[in-house]
Each structure stands twice: as structure tokens, then as C-alpha cells.
Design a protein around this nucleic acid. Structure first.
Lengths: 188, 188
DNA sequence: TGGTTATAAGACAGTGATGTCCTATCCGGC
DNA sequence: GCCGGATAGGACATCACTGTCTTATAACCA
């Protein structure tokens, strides 16, 4: 009895596998997905799913926590305010694209759980980035910051949903470039 | 008995009022909204709601049909291929913004009902518009058309969701301008 | 191999939403 | 004022999902 629980390693692996499956299923089918769907996607019996997460709410919360954690950590590690605006946007987008389905679910379902955490660690960071760009004269001021934040999130989610099997950098480049410079061919 | 059904005028009015309420509720709460929520929002008894739409599925389908119809009609009447690209995008965006909550629900829930109708009357039109812009050298070719279509839809939905109580033209201008030229301050 | 623990599979009750039905009431047309 | 259809409000069965539990089996560790 040296360890409090002997198989804590495996347990954590299965837990993350379940959350991963939940993210995939919820990203695709949205709220309509049931616990059976999640269990099936995770190749796990429904009872096992409930052993790991005592309720649907608990699973959703865990998923949201992981998503906010990863997105927030990625954004924090990106040192956005230490690089030029364009590079900062590229890093921010990359940090969120890497989160993948987790971020899609988070963006869609934020407000139902932990809207404060999301705002503090993701929304607020994007807002700060945009405002820094404004103060440098690089980001337009004729559109409310809140709209730009929503648009950026929306563009990321759209591309993540539309992308079939492209590499991460392709998506990051496309999102960053379209968000910053639009769909029109630049004069450059 | 000159008319097949005497109160057909009122009936239609109530029906559209119900669908309107459904669009508002579903746009805000998503799939989580129940028939009771819709009935409440429409200020109608639940039984009455079921008299007009025999099932939730029927209500959703009616909502989707109206949304596709209005969006498709607006796009068709916009004569997109008779004006310059920028004006065409503005008209397309306006046609979809005017649909409001209907379009938000449609964009979010498309694929669950009538994905073909949506593709034919909305998605395809946007795709054609983008491809015309490409052939004119005005729209970038380094991002897949499908992505651009999704991004445009995503931007519209994002702004519609973020906008508090702004006028339609403000939203249209912001969406069109951000989609075409991005969030960065142009060199112009 | 033997003992321990997680798991799969399924039965089960609780719950909330769906869809049906009924009755008193209301409202528009005469 | 009167009448017919529509509505509000609520009771009711049904259904799907949730969450709990049991048992036989499988996986793991020593």
C-alpha cells in the first residue's frame, strides 16, 4: 500500500481517452450526442464511462476544463506581447487550432460552463491582443473589439469544421491570413 | 364556405409567429431548447404549438424551410453576378443578415435537415460568388473555396451572435469589410 | 499461477421531454 | 347577445436518456 491507488497511470490514460472521444463526438453532433455515443466512441462500456465521470455534467465540465487549460496554456506560452502583431496572431491561432475538437466544443458551449474561465484565459487574451494591435495602429478601429474577437473565434471554428485532413500549419496560415487581410487579393 | 378554411389568414399569422419564436429560442439556447420553451416564447399553449406543428421535427423542418427560402430568395433577388464583386458580397451578406435568427439556426443546424436545399440555394450561391471573384482575380486562390464559404458563414453568425442592438447596415458593413479585407488596417 | 481490480454487458428505476387528449374558456363573426 | 371554432391549461401515456447496480469476464500485478 505504498501508493494511494495502484493503477493511477492507466486510469488517467483512460480518462483522457474518454474526454478525447467526448470532444470528437460533441464537436461533430453537438448537444445531441448522448452518453452512449460518447461511450461508443471511446470504445468503453457506458458503466465504465460513469465510473470515470459520475454525470454528464461532470464530463462536460472536465472537457471544458481541459479545453480552457490547454488553450489558456498555449496562449500564455505564446508570449503574444513579445512579438509583432502578425506573428502574435499566428501564434494565438496556432495555440487554439492545436486544441482542435476541444476548442470547437468550448467555443460552441462556452457560457454553459465556466464562462469566466474562458473569458479570462482565452477571450480576454484575444481581446488584449486586438487592443494592442489597435494601439499600434495595425488593427482597424471601426469594428467593435468584441465583434473582432467573435469573428476570430468563428473563423477558427469554421476552418476546423471544414478542414478535411489538412496539416495544422495550413489551417493556421489560412486562418491568420484571412482574418488579418481578408479573402480579397491584397494590393501587395 | 367560399374559402376552404375560413381563418386561414390568422392561422398563417400564428404559424409564422411560432416559427419566429422558435428561431429566436433556438438561436439563443441551441438544441437545448424544448417545445415548452418555444411555446412560452411564442406566448402560446404547448397544445396549440402541437396543433400547428405535429412534432418537433416538423417545426424544425418548417423553420429550416423558411430559412432556406428567405435566404435563397434574398440571394437570388440580389443579382449577384450583375454587379462588381465588392457590391455582390455586400448584397449577399445583407440578404443573409436580414434573415437573422433563422439564418443562425440554419447555419448551425444545417446537415440535420435539408443539407441539399441549403447547398443549392445558399452554399452554392456563395461558392459561385467566390469563384467568380477568383476568376476576376479579386479573391485569393491560396485558400480552398469551401473554407472561404465556411468562413463567410461563420463570420456572419459570429457577428449576429455578438451584436447587441446595432442596425442592420452596421453589421453588413462590418461583416463584408472584415471578410473581404480582414481585421488589419489596410494600406489604403 | 493466483488474487485483485477494472471492465463489459445488461437490467433497472428515475426523470424530463414528447406527443395525445380533454374541458372550460375566449374570441371573432353573425 | 349568440354560436362555432380555436385556445389555454392541465392530465396522461410514452419514450429516450440518465444514473445505479449486478454479475460474469478480462486484464493486470506479484
Amino acid at each position: 500500500m505504498s501508493n494511494p491507488s495502484p493503477r493511477t497511470g492507466l486510469r488517467e490514460r483512460v480518462a483522457t481517452a474518454i474526454v478525447e472521444a467526448a470532444a470528437a463526438v460533441l464537436a461533430e453532433r453537438g448537444d445531441a450526442a448522448s452518453m452512449s455515443d460518447v461511450a461508443g466512441a471511446a470504445s468503453v462500456a457506458r458503466a465504465t464511462l460513469y465510473r470515470y465521470f459520475p454525470s454528464r455534467e461532470a464530463l462536460l465540465e472536465a472537457l471544458g476544463t481541459v479545453a480552457v487549460e490547454e488553450a489558456g496554456r498555449g496562449l500564455a506560452e505564446a508570449r503574444l506581447n513579445e512579438v509583432a502583431i502578425e506573428e502574435a496572431f499566428a501564434r494565438a491561432v496556432r495555440a487554439l487550432v492545436v486544441v482542435g475538437d476541444y476548442f470547437v466544443v468550448l467555443a460552441r458551449e462556452r457560457g454553459r460552463f465556466s464562462p469566466d474561465d474562458f473569458d479570462e484565459r482565452v477571450g480576454g487574451v484575444l481581446r488584449d491582443l486586438i487592443e494592442r494591435g489597435r494601439s499600434l495602429g495595425e488593427i482597424r478601429e471601426d469594428v467593435p473589439v468584441a465583434w473582432l474577437v467573435e469573428v476570430l473565434i468563428g473563423v477558427i471554428v469554421s476552418v476546423l469544421g471544414a478542414a478535411t485532413s489538412t496539416g495544422v500549419e495550413d489551417k493556421v496560415d489560412a486562418i491568420t491570413s484571412v482574418f488579418l487581410d481578408g479573402a480579397r487579393v491584397g494590393s501587395a
